[in-house]
Design a protein around this nucleic acid. Sequence first.
DNA 1: TCTATTTCGCGTACTACGTACTCGAAATGG
DNA 2: CCATTTCGAGTACGTAGTACGCGAAATAGA
Lengths: 247, 247
Amino acid sequence: MADEEPTSIWMQPELHERSGPGRRPGYSRDQITRTAVGIADAEGVEAATMRRIASELGTGAMSLYRYVPRRDDLFDLMIDLAMSEIELPDHPSGDWRSALTLLAQQIRAAGLRHPWLIALLTSRPTLGPHLLRVHEFALGAFERIGLDIDDITGFVGMLNDYIHSAIRREIGWLEEARRTGLDPERWKRDYMGPYVRQVVESGAFPLFSRSVLDSRTAHLGPGERFRHGLDRILDAIAALITSTRPR
Amino acid sequence: MADEEPTSIWMQPELHERSGPGRRPGYSRDQITRTAVGIADAEGVEAATMRRIASELGTGAMSLYRYVPRRDDLFDLMIDLAMSEIELPDHPSGDWRSALTLLAQQIRAAGLRHPWLIALLTSRPTLGPHLLRVHEFALGAFERIGLDIDDITGFVGMLNDYIHSAIRREIGWLEEARRTGLDPERWKRDYMGPYVRQVVESGAFPLFSRSVLDSRTAHLGPGERFRHGLDRILDAIAALITSTRPR
DNA sequence: TCTATTTCGCGTACTACGTACTCGAAATGG
DNA sequence: CCATTTCGAGTACGTAGTACGCGAAATAGA
């Protein structure tokens, strides 16, 4: 009857078990979302088109619009499905560093399993229930040591900023290679490599060049590098905690 | 003759003043990029289509492909044009904190002038000359106090993570409102507002709710909030510097 | 000045996207 | 069994990026 009010996907009820006449829905948001995630994992988020998802389900593209108002809402559902895979205790236990290290590694694992996740997550303001659950866990880790809510929010923000950026750095050029259709090794050697070499050899950016050439951490595996940076951030937060709350 | 090697846009020469027969180019990468930036600033990056840019220049879409191999390369050019507006001394002077504060505020100003900048910058690995210049400046601020190159890279990364995320937070939902076609006030009240209210009232996420309701920093203006978070990060870096380099 | 050669401008066209509209099919309550 | 309601999905529209190809323009050499 009336226009659907434009509001968050989380407020709009799913097609339900009703009482009353009429056909029963043959699909579900969850089923559609899982299909979309499967395609996006394998071929990139840009392959998860409405037509493609529908054909994977053996139906027509327009059928999906009975379940999801717009494609962007499907992105929100995909994000939250990925976040639902993050396994955390009901409440942070032990010291805050180990709780947040667990959190960070879970998010990293999800980000590697779903290379589109971080890009979507940071490109739209979304607040699905599982994202809220994870966020609440992070807030809880700091709350246990009695900090002000604004400080907590700030620290969780710092941590999130690092986690997201580090994952992006880890998969960024892999994704770029996939998008441009080259295999990653060729991309690095033929596409970006020559340009970086020219920049280095030009001598115009000596510190950048040193960071490319003289890195002692280059031998670290990706997981170790992530962990190293994470420890750095946690050190920084620890320092801020002791300095802002000496009373 | 031979296929154009797929390589970075910065390696591919512009159509030039040549010697030899043939027509002279009537446009330039710079002119095309400035047009694209103008459209993106006013109507969002998704409005800066090849057709639209071309029609703004009074020509056809395919003409642009004489100057830019793919639309993605145009994004790289747009990013670097925006970065070119960042004014910095040739070398960092004074203490590192004031140098980096200047840097951060310049980047924030550019990010507000060009609301698409941070989204593009963090969604693709790009290294244009002006981005390198800005990066080199940040590295230089730390180099003056005699740090190891890996530490410098880490600190600059921390700082960049904050700057980008903070700007994203500042303009994120404004951009989302524009994308969905609502005016920002209605978006906040009608779209996201009811959902957040429901989440808060459900009581399921008490710390998140407190961060929404009890924020003492809510009265701060955007610039002050940015500055406040920036000082926090610089404090954290300062603490790391004294702890990793007490010798 | 004429002409051969090179390069630019850009019209046409193809594929693929999101999604509005519509209506027949299906399933249930009475 | 039928009236009512809801789902499934085909068709179609507008808009992307961009491959292809050709006529127009401009210069170098004669």
